[in-house]
Amino acid sequence: MATVFRIGGDLPVRRLGFGAMHLPTEWGAARESATAVVRRAVELGVTLIDTAYLYGGGANEELLAEALYPYPDGLVVTTKVGVARSGPDGEWRLDGRPAVLREQVEQALRRLRVERIELLQLHRIDPRTPLADQIGTLGELQREGSIGRIGLSEVTVAELEQARRIVDVASVQNRYNVLDREHEAVLGACERAGIAFLPWRPVAAGGSGATAQIAAVAAETGATATQVVLAWLLGRSPVMLPIPGTARVRHLEENLAAERLLLTPAQRAALDGLAGA
């Protein structure tokens, strides 16, 4: 099983990455712990780290830059834009207006301390703004050199196809795990096009261990339930790039060890047959 995938055909990353959403950003011991986690991830060979403006209004991006800059060669920090505090009372809402996307990309460049974001993803499609305007703005930013590759998040097959008529789509980040396969058709579309598929909530929010089939495979292999479901994801599709997140070094090390777990055909068949398939 390949452990490296080339996003957009030319950007190599280790298939098992790290999702930074759960890292605390407040000052003090919690921030120091978060810094230790993300530095340990890089020490262990992680080359894809996922963040977003939504995660603390940019605070998560600042934490990653503080912990890792200057970035080691080969490390890709991908971020997401398209959600802003632009609701009537200042609440978060989807906002894909071109001016908002441009401003968020400019601020992400500053916070991450880079001149170009190698993979920039649209966090959600804003139903109030024409899709062509949202994707077209990202395409303009790509041509201007601010971003290298464009990704989408929580999209349907139809939306993906519409976006691909405007730009080259390098990645899709949809919710997907062994117990939740609502976006199976989107995964299939990504496979056919060679598009990276980054499943968020890859371990079913910790509920995997309560499932008898997963617990049985874990017992047979001597692995944890989390490692079993991550190994299942890695074997599910060659375009699958799981990004499990944690705020603890111990859990980080457990997650990354899943890459070495090889499931038998019988074990995979048991997991394939879980509800939601």
Rank of each mutant, 00 (worst) to 15 (best):
R39P: 07
R39C: 10
R40C: 10
R40T: 13
R40W: 01
V42C: 09
V42D: 06
V42R: 09
E43I: 01
E43D: 15
E43T: 11
E43S: 09
E43A: 14
L44V: 04
L44W: 03
G45E: 12
G45N: 12
V46T: 10
T47N: 05
I49G: 03
I49E: 00
I49W: 00
D50E: 14
D50M: 11
D50C: 09
T51S: 14
T51Y: 03
T51K: 04
T51C: 11
A52M: 06
Y53L: 11
Y53T: 14
Y53F: 14
Y53K: 14
L54Y: 13
L54F: 15
Y55C: 02
Y55S: 09
G56A: 12
G56T: 11
G57P: 04
G57L: 02
G58W: 01
G58T: 04
G58E: 03
A59I: 03
A59N: 14
A59P: 01
A59C: 03
N60V: 09
N60G: 13
E61H: 08
E61Q: 13
E61A: 09
E62M: 10
L63R: 08
L63A: 06
L63Y: 02
L63P: 00
L64F: 05
L64H: 03
A65H: 07
A65W: 01
E66G: 10
E66M: 07
E66R: 15
E66D: 15
E66Y: 03
E66W: 02
A67K: 10
A67F: 02
L68P: 07
Y69V: 12
Y69M: 13
Y69L: 10
Y69T: 12
P70Y: 12
P70I: 06
P70N: 10
Y71V: 06
Y71F: 14
Y71D: 08
Y71E: 01
P72D: 02
P72E: 05
D73G: 14
D73C: 03
G74C: 11
G74N: 12
G74R: 13
L75C: 04
L75D: 03
V76C: 02
